[in-house]
Design a protein around this nucleic acid. Sequence first.
DNA 1: TCCTGAGTATACCGACCGGTGTGGTTACTA
DNA 2: TAGTAACCACACCGGTCGGTATACTCAGGA
Lengths: 191, 191
Amino acid sequence: MTEGLTLTPAAERVLEVAGRLFYDNGIHAVGVESIASEAGVTKKTLYDRFGSKDVLIGQYLRRRDERWREHLLSVVEQRGRITPARRVLLVFDALEEWIATENPRGCAFLNAQAELPDASHPGREVIREQKQWLLEYLRTLAREAGVRNPRKLATSLLVLLEGATVTASLGIVPGAIGNAKDVAKQLIETS
Amino acid sequence: MTEGLTLTPAAERVLEVAGRLFYDNGIHAVGVESIASEAGVTKKTLYDRFGSKDVLIGQYLRRRDERWREHLLSVVEQRGRITPARRVLLVFDALEEWIATENPRGCAFLNAQAELPDASHPGREVIREQKQWLLEYLRTLAREAGVRNPRKLATSLLVLLEGATVTASLGIVPGAIGNAKDVAKQLIETS
DNA sequence: TCCTGAGTATACCGACCGGTGTGGTTACTA
DNA sequence: TAGTAACCACACCGGTCGGTATACTCAGGA
């Protein structure tokens, strides 16, 4: 999952800049020229390191996925006595923090999916893996919480998470994430 | 809301083609040239009718909004004896139909939002209106269902709808919409 | 010492982008 | 009958797209 982390300093800068520009402006709206110049790198170097814009897009998503997983796990897997049922709800706290600090324009993976209709694009695989992993993780948490139907609860949680992210990014409803958390709480209690 | 529906035949064809190409490929990925040629129209005509690509994008979203509202209302407001509580759940049936027939690539408005970071873009206003209207409508339905807190239920419903749409379009979880509907049912019953 | 990898600078490529201008044809209508 | 709206064909604009080629510098290691 985390192969190729020995990036050269220039490649590192490129990836950092690409991550910012892609997320803020949309993928197609950003040219490789502007990425290179803002990273203080020539286009030649960019292409020597990444090969193509499409590969760079894939790496951008890959890296963002890594950061999100790190953040999520650091919040949910925190030490301290807490019931497994309550631990599930920490996922929503992690999301709220993430949105406040890194995600004002919604889920980067959904945004990318909107721009990458070709299922064979390198970025699409990363998106699939990301959502699949999240679903699996939610199933694990649901199982540990001892609910009757962990699979079903995990699906509900995924729907609530995605819905809360989207709704929050639209900026129409203020308490979308808290609302989703409340719903999740009720689902767990009556399960 | 529905001003300017007296489109010329050429403009009509342009809008129809634009709707298909924008949704299928993403907005930035589609050039005005290809829209014009596929509609059997010169670029000149396209620009005489719409003025700019950005305006055309706005009209595309406007039209899609109209069709979605029509569909939603036709399903939910159907005649027949049905309790207001059950009527709310018809929203999910409407969504399921819509996704199956017109929405394989997810919500057109969220996809557009991903590509239009500029809040002053003509399309952004349409997106805001669309989501605002949906939220208001859900509040009305919730009120008629006689729940304790219609505002809160409406928010939950919106989160569930958006989440179900997104999750379904990802193609990872098969029963996402049915799952969301079940959750909504439970929310209404215990409310 | 010599080679390699990582980087620089710059020029270039064909293709496509959104948008405009000119000039002509048809059909309806005042 | 004259005017106008709606189209057509086509040529053109400056700018940007993703990507490549050439030639050079510099540091580190065998």
